[in-house]
Design a protein around this nucleic acid. Structure first.
Lengths: 368, 368
DNA sequence: CCACTTTCGCAACGCTGTTGCCAAAGTGCA
DNA sequence: TGCACTTTGGCAACAGCGTTGCGAAAGTGG
């Protein structure tokens, strides 16, 4: 058990903390069980708590409207187990994906089901006022449907930023955003809590919530190349929300010049290959970067996403798989290579994950 | 607050867990305070618990012999604060560093002070029986001095292994160790708990306990090149104790052949440069690898160690610093580059850290 | 119909941190 | 020297957490 406060320092745990933790844990298991539901005894088994403790916790959750009974399982010789399930309508969140040329927003319920979606063209360079206007309009439009159960709005966008304070450092190519306090500006106008995060982190969070277990990396190849890291079920952002700077990993010292000033970055090599139409070389480059990452962190899975990948998923998945397999074989890994898959959710992963920035805390997932 | 069991899955937390957590937290703060001691109110402030809770916890710790009063601070206008300190003799651990040609062992007290040390030549290839014999003899010799307060023996060695079960996968160059259950073999003979871990992980743990805050990487350059990662105060081992595979990160695609079968690994390039006597090139290569790592994980600090580094610390620290500074400057990092330092403790870091494998759980640090 | 199994809630309990209160032990001014 | 004040920290009562003991409810199977 680790108690941590915002800065990562360990902190004491008292009874209310404990109560919230266990309740969140049960909610998380209820969500994972989906429509099928899960019984009290199974919850007890998974949490390590006694059945009676689970009964008390679920009774509170039912009273608060977060959980409900959902039929019962077949008997195994005694009283059949009563199934419990999450009440999806008990909470909603809006997720906004701000990309360079498009805004994509979703309204999601507690079950991570998308119950509303909007998509409009956007010019991130049009200035803060215009962009904020659009975000506020789209978020409010979606938020109305949630009524009083709207927990808040999550915003995901590219570029370095401060996740804790919701302040942008800079958005590559758009210097007018430097230092903009996006979270507070939006929270003021919307009147609900707002959380801001990098696009790749949001996507990784969404995938973790969506059922991907353990530790994995989400590699996003679109107009740029970045990564979201999930370690032990939690998004790893680093102290300055800077983790996942995958694209400017150097894999070819003294190689091709990258716009970032370095030479031989994965992003530069990968995009150059794509520019030449050589997708298999792009996949190989991406694979070498992924293999470095897998070796450094000992993760379980690599997921690929982003426009460039979804445009030609097969060659990318095969190419990256092949590099990982080669390197695992040479190094004699007993379990074989780490699997590579296309990230589910298509081009909506980032918006879906942005909504999870608000929902994750309810389920005890990280500081999001 | 995150409750986790061995496999990293989230688990419920009950009152005994909570008690242990808070007690460990207080012990950790007592240790960090060292000989100076720390007052109850300061403990309350740091943990977030109420002063009364701290009073109860420290009363228990004093009763059990782990803490004691240590004078008092100057008054600030009222009753002066009573200082509390750790009782270092309340627990000891033996740390063993098994290197390819040498065994180094220390006896450490709760305060991480080395109270005994031994160092003997060793041939890791001489077979399990001979090596075990040596480890048992040296560990028992040191353990005697601890009397009944010996918590156990920690063993750190190179090569991939399973930290959870204490089983070696293989030790590079010594195939006779493949699959050897080192932990259980030693625990049987020694009659005390034994924990086994990679040398770099042990060193990283020792450094984290030794006062390095936050997240950092320990890069160990000796006969090989590896890394130990500390993320948020906890050693990151990955699912298969495989994290920190830094040496076989490819930074020169299609470059120099490495013995591992890949091409352009940091280790191959670095050792080749050293072979040519070109330390500054070795440092540059190491720096590029370190910069990749810093970017991926957004860590706060890079520490260098290992025989090759301690033989010429200046050029390595300067060389790596320079690469990190260049890349940070180009990428426009507002906080500037991540600092690079020589790991304190010299060639004893691994043995010191191995002892911490047993002590860390007492202070609520990870699953060690 | 009855014995048995299994689920699950009620009640009492032990233990946690918290709150209210007061004694202890200083400072500082009259 | 005396007294008011500040600050520390323990004692006692308390609320709330998960746990234990036990029994009612709700099935199966002979």
């Amino acid at each position: 058990m680790n108690g941590t406060n915002g800065s990562g320092r360990t902190a004491g745990v008292n009874l209310p903390d404990l109560r919230n933790h266990n309740a969140a844990l049960v909610l998380d298991l209820l969500r994972a069980a989906g429509r099928d539901g899960i019984s009290r005894l199974e919850l007890a088994d998974r949490t390590g708590l006694t059945p009676q403790a689970v009964s008390k916790i679920t009774a509170r959750l039912r009273e608060e409207g977060f959980a409900a009974e959902a039929g019962q399982r077949a008997s195994t010789g005694g009283k059949p187990r009563t199934l419990l399930r999450l009440v999806p309508d008990a909470g909603h969140a809006v997720g906004v994906h701000l990309d360079r040329d498009e805004l994509r927003a979703v309204l999601t319920d507690l079950d991570a089901s998308v119950v509303g979606e909007r998509r409009v063209p956007l010019d991130l360079g049009a200035g803060a006022e215009a962009v904020l206007e659009t975000v506020v309009r789209e978020a409010e439009e979606l938020g109305h449907a949630a009524g009083g159960s709207l927990l808040g709005v999550g915003v995901a966008l590219p570029g370095p930023l401060d996740h804790v304070h919701g302040v942008l450092h800079r958005v590559t190519g758009f210097p007018e955003w430097d230092g903009f306090p996006l979270r507070d500006a939006l929270a003021d106008r919307l009147g609900v809590p707002v959380v801001v995060d990098k696009d790749t982190n949001a996507a990784a969070l969404g995938l973790a919530v969506g059922g991907e277990r353990g530790s994995f990396a989400y590699l996003h190849l679109g107009t740029g190349l970045g990564a979201g890291l999930v370690i032990g079920g939690t998004v790893h952002r680093g102290a300055r929300t800077g983790a996942g700077e995958f694209g400017h990993q150097v894999i070819q010292m003294d190689g091709l010049h990258c716009w970032c000033g370095n030479r031989g970055c994965v992003e530069a090599l990968c995009l150059a290959a794509i520019g030449k139409g050589d997708v298999s070389e792009a996949a190989r480059v991406l694979g070498e970067g992924a293999a470095n990452l897998v070796g450094l962190l000992d993760i379980d899975l690599v997921l690929l996403g982003g426009r460039t990948v979804t445009a030609a998923p097969g060659p990318f998945v095969r190419g990256v798989t092949s590099v990982l397999a080669d390197r695992a074989r040479r190094e004699g890994s007993p379990e074989g290579a780490v699997p590579v898959r296309l990230a589910p959710g298509g081009d909506r992963v980032v918006a879906d994950g942005a909504a999870q920035l608000l929902l994750a805390p309810v389920f005890g997932r990280g500081d999001g």
